[in-house]
């Protein structure tokens, strides 16, 4: 089954990445999409939250980031799975790509990062360095 990984952060650009894949879906012969959101790893003590509260917060923010992409995929009737992971963004994208056996990655050329002013987001560049998969960058 041909899997396409789409890391999203809830930004309009990452939603565009989903929309773009859907435009080309018939050509790409997609088996399924893995929609991934990577949240920063928070530790107990962050804003005086305990471990359970941190897990709930991570999940909530992850779902918020995924929702627009989920809606598009549901409308299109493309099979998909969602993943909310914590850790450094690019290495996590590369790891999930491997775990899901993804054949390619679609992503926004820049996301919500602090240095979104960069032409090609640092996440996109780092991801390219950590995987040998083709990456389609969408603006």
């Amino acid at each position: 089954m041909r899997t396409v990984l789409i890391p999203v952060d809830g930004s309009p650009q990452s939603t565009m990445a989903v929309a773009t894949l859907l435009r080309f879906a018939d050509y790409e012969r997609i088996g399924q999409v893995c929609l991934l959101n990577v949240q920063p790893e928070l530790h107990p003590g962050y804003r005086a939250l305990d471990a359970a509260e941190i897990a709930a917060l991570t999940l909530q923010q992850g779902e918020r980031a995924l929702i627009d992409g989920v809606r598009l995929l549901e409308e299109a009737g493309i099979p998909f799975q969602i993943r909310i992971e914590t850790g450094a963004v690019a290495p996590t994208i590369a790891r999930v790509a491997e775990e899901t056996g993804a054949e390619q990655i679609f992503m926004g050329s820049q996301g919500r990062g602090a240095i979104a002013a960069f032409v090609l987001g640092s996440v996109a560049i780092k991801t390219l360095s950590l995987t040998s998969l083709p990456i389609t960058l969408v603006r």
């Binding site: 390619q104 050329s109 032409v119 083709p134 389609t136 960058l137 969408v138 603006r139």
Partner: peptide, 13 residues
Amino acid sequence: VVHLSTLPVTLVQ
């Protein structure tokens, strides 16, 4: 190209 293009750009390694 990624910077200038409004079209999706697929980079193959």
